[in-house]
Computed example of a mutant assay.
Amino acid sequence: MCGRFAITLPNDAMAQLFAAQPSNALPAVPGFNVCPTNQVHVVRTSETGRKLLPMRWGFLPQWYKAENGGPLLINARAETLAEKPAFRAACRERRCLLVATGFYEWTKSAQDTRLPWYIHRRDSAPIAFAGVWQDWGTAESRQATCAIVTTQANAHMSKIHHRMPLILEPDDWALWLGERGKGAARLMKPGAENVLDYFRVDPAVNSNRAHGPELIEPFEDDQSAPQEG
């Protein structure tokens, strides 16, 4: 799964990387502790090309009467994406990319303490999470919302968690966004083993109020190696 992430890439660099027209209302960067319900950077396609837009991280199905009208849907399982009523239409018609520099996951110590890990690409490139989006609300309350698609973890990532975000390579962005016809379903599988790496970070990130570049710096202690299983 993915419940927190970081984004340090400037907005103009994101727009250039994804060949997208940026919105004037993008979230401020850097963000070292992006949390659910925050506004996040999302790339989607339109009739006039790709757009880089802000969206609420937390997908709101149309039948929700309020933002808290049901479970907080920050992730969507790839295995059931095309079947779940909340995501079925978005899977066909409203796929997107969420931009990140890295993301956090947690393990537990023998004393049941939460141990945070920062996960990033080995090549230091930005991460493109596969996502789905949905407009929700009416009139002034109308907003775009999104969720990150997840898959079963590959062997490397399973040392940290049994799920992982679906991370797409540049050659696959157009297919996921629907710009290259049909066939996006074939992308919904665990990523290659050699793409991601991880290291322990300061437990300060356990608080959703923590911010600052120190959150993504390595933190060494006697529990800095993940345990198998």
Results as ranks from 00 to 15, higher is better:
R95T: 08
A153N: 08
L98I: 13
D123H: 12
I160W: 08
R77W: 04
F103M: 03
H156K: 12
W173Q: 00
R95A: 08
E105W: 04
H161K: 10
Q111S: 11
D171P: 01
A110W: 07
E67M: 15
P85Q: 14
A125M: 10
P170C: 03
P170M: 03
T101I: 05
T150F: 00
Q143S: 14
E105Y: 06
M164C: 04
Q111M: 10
R50D: 00
F129G: 00
V132I: 15
T150P: 03
G131R: 05
N75W: 00
H120C: 07
T113I: 14
N154M: 13
I148G: 00
A130E: 01
A110D: 14
T48L: 13
K84G: 08
S46L: 07
W63E: 06
R56A: 01
T150W: 02
T138N: 13
Q134S: 11
W136G: 12
P116G: 09
T80W: 07
A144F: 10
W57P: 02
C96S: 15
E140H: 14
R95S: 05
C146T: 11
A147W: 04
T151C: 10
A89Y: 15
E83W: 03
L53C: 09
S109G: 12
I148V: 13
Q152C: 02
E67N: 07
W57A: 07
W106M: 09
A153D: 06
G70F: 13
D112Y: 12
P61T: 11
C146N: 02
H156T: 13
D171S: 06
A174P: 00
F59V: 02
E105I: 00
G58W: 03
W133E: 14
P170R: 00
A89E: 15
M157G: 01
A76N: 06
A110K: 14
T101Q: 13
W136A: 11
A130L: 03
L73E: 07
G102S: 10
E105H: 06
S124R: 13
L177P: 02
E105S: 08
L81W: 04
L98N: 03
